[in-house]
């Protein structure tokens, strides 16, 4: 487990990149933290490279940048309003690289990310979530690299069919699923999937 990740009495802390003090990571605000509480602990080393799709204002990204002291976090988001805050965050933390693009259009930013990454974290809540993940993994993920995917069930379909099986079957064509958990009570109707590239 990463040195900077501390789990004490069901509370999650990270050592701050700049001040070296412990910072609490709220699982009600971050799906990755909720996953850690539920038992999904990704292999994040201190020099690993991470691609974060749907970085938003950078709450989760800031904690992941604590974990990868010598590595890099690429944060991609489409909204200019949340990108303003992410750019300000990247000025404080030197291992964050903000990119203002649509995750669907991989060709637009494939020149910016030239190295392959160890882990992809995706939190975009779109209908074609898995298609987006596959596109990005094909270009940017290392062989046997890992992914963390948060599936928002209500974003995919409102019908009462078994969406989870359908989506996971689609995912299994490219990835080997290691673990999946429901995120209640931290997040409603969300599933966190931890998988590895085949």
């Amino acid at each position: 487990m990463n040195k900077n990740l501390i789990i004490k009495d069901k509370l999650i802390f990270t050592k701050d990149l700049n001040s070296k003090k412990n910072r609490e990571w709220n699982p009600f605000h971050s799906k990755v933290a909720a996953g850690i509480r539920k038992g999904i602990i990704p292999n994040i080393n201190q020099d690993s490279k991470i691609l974060y799709l749907g970085a938003a204002e950078g709450y989760t990204v800031s904690f992941i940048s604590d974990l990868v002291e010598n590595g890099v976090v690429y944060g991609i988001d489409i909204s200019p309003y949340s990108m303003q805050k992410l750019v300000l965050l990247s000025e404080e933390r030197e291992n964050i690289i903000p990119i203002l693009e649509d995750c669907n259009l991989v060709d637009e930013y494939k020149d910016l990310i030239k190295t392959k990454v160890d882990l992809i974290i995706q939190d975009v809540s779109q209908k074609n979530q898995i298609e987006i993940l596959k596109k990005n993994a094909k270009l940017f993920l290392k062989e046997k690299g890992e992914i963390i995917l948060s599936l928002k069930l209500s974003a995919i379909s409102q019908k009462k069919i078994n969406i989870i099986d359908r989506e996971l079957k689609d995912l299994e064509t490219d990835f080997r699923i290691i673990r999946k958990v429901r995120l209640e009570p931290f997040e409603k109707k969300h599933i966190l999937v931890f998988a590895q590239k085949k």
Binding site: V72, P80, M83, Q84, D111, K114
Partner: peptide
């Protein structure tokens, strides 16, 4: 590409998007 170069590209795109007439 350098980290600084990428950040400058995103800053330029940010200004373009926020200055867009549609958005206003």
């Amino acid at each position: 590409m350098n980290r600084k170069e990428i950040i400058e590209i995103t800053k330029q795109k940010l200004k373009e998007k926020l200055n867009n007439a549609d958005q206003k």
